[in-house]
Every structure is written in structure tokens, then in C-alpha cells.
Amino acid sequence: MSGNVERPRIAVLVSPAVHPVSGRACAGAADLAALALGQALVASGAPDVFYAGAAPDSALADYLAHGCRRLLVLRHEPDQDVSASLAAAVRPYDLVICGIRSGGGMSSGLLPYQLAELLGRPLLPGLAELSLDSGTVRGAQSLPQGEQRLLEAGFPVLASVHPRAATARPWRFAGLAQGRIEVTPATGCGLTECAFEPERRALPLRAARAERGHERMLQAIAAGDGQAAGLVVNQGDSVEKAQVVLDYLRHHQLVDY
């Protein structure tokens, strides 16, 4: 464990996203959650926020509007690997928070892993919750179908967060003038060649038994006492039919009158 346990140094990583309808630059949902967490965890409410890449300042303005006071930009040439310069910049920090993946560009979600590898620090990936407890970061990792897994690690550590991990501060026009973007030129090597392959089709789900929906429904309403099927009432008026339903509910003690 290193760093100041009482006043940890926290860095937030952000990058511009592409709006799904208009294609305009905007803030990424997961990066906004990371920013909001950073703002909540730092006593001053203003964590150090980093961006590394070639995007112009205008594409980052949304983060200022969402309450980022100071955005440190490592300005790269387009199509460069930013992980090395970013790793060097965030090395002094106890906790580095970023979104699970950017909302634009490659959106591979690999950067947190690359940084963790370069820094030799643990990564808590895909957190839906994050809390600090005297030098320990605890988080709930968001898994498919609503499942969660509790993770924890000591400083220094990286965490990538889910878009739902925190609610961003509202977009404020005044924030554009209150925050500032500080640009430092940076260099990185070219991106490693990657080969694109077509997405593999998931196999369609097949029902275990080929039956019609009506048959499955009849099985589903079968009583638990071994009877094969429920009772189908076709005769009588609505009062008599309702009486059958009421008797059934009373028999199973589902109503108490």
C-alpha cells in the first residue's frame, strides 16, 4: 500500500464519444460516471482529469460543462498508441478511474488493461459501485443479467466503471467558462496492427422440446398435486366462471375470504 490513505490522489480518464444519432462529439456515458465518482471521492470535488489523444478541445468541452474544472490533455498525433504517455502521467496517482469503454473511436475497452499492465497495478474492471475505505478500493463488478461480484484491492489501483456507476452532474453552460483545458504535447508509438474479423453469430436458442405454446401453457398451469392439466371452463356465465377461479384460489389458500 502506498500513497496518502486520508487524502488519496485520484485521476479520472475521459475521452470524447460520438453521439449515436447525430455523430457529434459528446461526453461518453461511462467516462461521465468515472468523472462523477472522482468528483464524489475527492474532497475538493475536482479530481485531476486526463485525456490522451488527438481530439480537439471542442470535443472535450462537454466534460467541463459536467463540472470538470481542469482537464489535462496529452495531445497526440492521430492514430498513436496513447497508453505509454497516459501511464506515465497517471503513475503518481493512488486511484485511476476510467469508463469501461469509450463512447467512440475503437471502443475496444482494452485501455484499462493496457494501463494496468504498464503500471503493474491491479485493475477492478466494470464496476457498478465503488467506495474507498482507508486505502482499500471496494467495488461491485457488474456482470450480465444483473449479477454482481464484489472486488477489492489496495492502493495504487485502477478501476473501470460502468455507465450506471454514478450519476453525472448536470450539464451547465457556466461550466464551459469555469473549467479549463491544459494541453501538453505527447508522443507515442504507432498503434499495433490489429486484424478485424467478422462478429461470430450467436447460436439461436432452441426450445428443449418442440411443443406448441398452448401445450406449454397447459403444462404450466397444471396443479402440483399430480394432475396433468388445469381445469378449462367453457360453460356457464361469467359469474360461474369467476366462482371457479375463486374456489381454486381458496383451495390453494391464495385468498383468505
Binding site: 460543462a65 452532474r169 448536470p170 450539464w171 451547465r172 453552460f173 457556466a174
Partner: peptide, 8 residues
């Protein structure tokens, strides 16, 4: 409110 606080 809208420009400074953003809470519409």
C-alpha cells in the same frame, strides 16, 4: 438556473 446549475 438552467445556465448555472443545469437542473431543469
Amino acid at each position: 438556473i438552467a445556465l448555472n446549475r443545469g437542473d431543469v
